[in-house]
Each structure stands twice: as structure tokens, then as C-alpha cells.
Design a protein around this nucleic acid. Structure first.
Lengths: 120, 120
DNA sequence: ACTACATATGAACAATTGAACATATGAAAG
DNA sequence: CTTTCATATGTTCAATTGTTCATATGTAGT
């Protein structure tokens, strides 16, 4: 029952000595990696994935999305806000109605890449 | 839980009448979309993204990953378990040491697609 | 057998999060 | 200006999640 709060790690490296340092150097900035995780976190919710999938078909208003997915208007609006915050969707206002659409082609690409992995 | 009958929704559709039904028909199965969300959820954590990024450089043991990222061995092991559950990594045992590596090229693709969106 | 080391697992805890509900904003029509 | 409809925003709350600590498993050597 040794309590080493210091550094829980191996006493020796298993690979050659420079590996740790070399990989650390090659690693992107912490901030970039966190941003990347935040991006995927946005995709990592079934409601938001459904909204994005629906928007693959084109521009759709909030109300229709709620109907299509059997969700409350509030839930859809909240999640669209998250998607907009991540710049995955954009919107266009026409009278009382707001039409949402995908912000760019990255979204399609990311979703279809994920699909490939899922459908294996 | 769900009171689907009294859902707050528009009284009329804004797009042409068949849009909702048409998009619903084109939508992938609920289960597939949920699996997709689960996949992205795995990417949606900074610790796991860091582990995956590190593994882009090649096969690395648990201990070295912990050192590279300044994480406890336990934290690394727990997250590697999640990554393995999603079939994003595989491992190889050599004596006491366990070396992890990326399961396939999808992982690289997904990460770099996400990167593109982040670096804008 | 025992010891040392690398990794995995279980449990408990704090922090995050998505949904529901209520309310607020914005826009067009009367 | 008031009403009505479409959408947005707060708030509360239950459930999920990541980390830490403690312990267990596995492996090699003595």
C-alpha cells in the first residue's frame, strides 16, 4: 500500500529513450486537441446526429425537424443552438420561420466517415 | 416519459406537404444513427483524443502514453478500454508490457477530417 | 513460494449534460 | 398595440461521465 502521489508511471521506458519526447514534440497543441474533442462531442449525441442527418437532405425549418424526429420544439432549438455554436449549421430567417442548413461540406464528410466505421 | 400526442408543433407545414415524410424515409435507421452518435461520443473527450493522437505516431505502451500525456496509469487504462470497446484501438502483449495501436485507418481519417474543421 | 512491475478493474465522487417545463423574444397580421 | 405563431432562452433535475483511489490480475524473475 505505497502511496506515491508523485508520478504514477513506469520507472523505465520500454521503448527507446527518445520516444516519449519525440511523440510529445510531434503532438498538436493541447488547445487544438481539446477543440477537436469539443467538436466530436457535438456529434456525439443522437439527437444532434439526427438533426444533422436530416439536414443532409437540405434546408429545413425548426418545426419540420421536430415533426420528422418526434422531438419537442424546445429540444430541437436547444440542440440547434449547440450545432450553431460549433459552426456546423447556419440559418436563414423567412418571416416567422427559421430555416437551418449545414454550414459546410466538412459536416457531410465527417458524418460519412463515421458511417463507414459504424457499418462494418 | 413521452407524451407524443400533445407535442408542440406547427399547425401547418411550411415546405411542401411531402417533405417531412420524404426526409423521414431517406433517413437511416434510428439504430444506425445512435451507433454513429456513440462512435463520435468516444472521440468527444480530450483524454481519448490525446491518446488517439499519440497513437497516430505508432504502437505505444500504456506506461509511455501516461508519461507523454501527464496522466495517471489508471486514467489511461480506463480510457483505452473505452477506445477498445469502440474498436478504435487494438493491443499486443509483450511480457508485462501492453502495446496499443490504432485499429484501422478510419481513425486517422476521422481525426484529420475533424482537424480540418477545427483549423479554420 | 515470493517480490517487483505493468496493466486492468471496481467503487465512489464531482462535474457535465440533455430533456422538460416555463417563459421570453421576434415577426406578421388584424 | 395586441394577438398569434415560430423559435429561442432560462432553470431545474436526473442521468451520464471522467477521474481518483484502492485493489486485483497478470507476467517475469529470484
Amino acid at each position: 500500500m505505497q502511496h506515491r502521489e508523485e508520478m504514477p508511471h513506469c520507472d523505465f521506458m520500454h521503448a527507446h529513450a527518445g520516444l516519449v519526447a519525440r511523440v510529445q514534440a510531434a503532438l498538436p497543441d493541447e488547445e487544438v486537441l481539446c477543440d477537436l474533442a469539443e467538436l466530436f462531442k457535438v456529434f456525439g449525441d443522437s439527437t444532434r446526429i439526427k438533426l444533422l442527418s436530416v439536414l443532409l437532405e437540405g434546408e429545413i425549418c425548426v418545426c419540420d425537424m421536430a415533426q420528422m424526429l418526434g422531438l419537442s420544439q424546445s429540444a430541437v432549438s436547444h440542440q440547434l443552438r449547440v450545432l450553431k455554436g460549433a459552426e456546423l449549421v447556419k440559418y436563414r430567417r423567412d418571416g416567422k420561420t427559421v430555416f437551418y442548413s449545414l454550414a459546410d461540406d466538412h459536416v457531410k464528410t465527417i458524418i460519412s466517415n463515421g458511417m463507414e466505421h459504424v457499418l462494418e
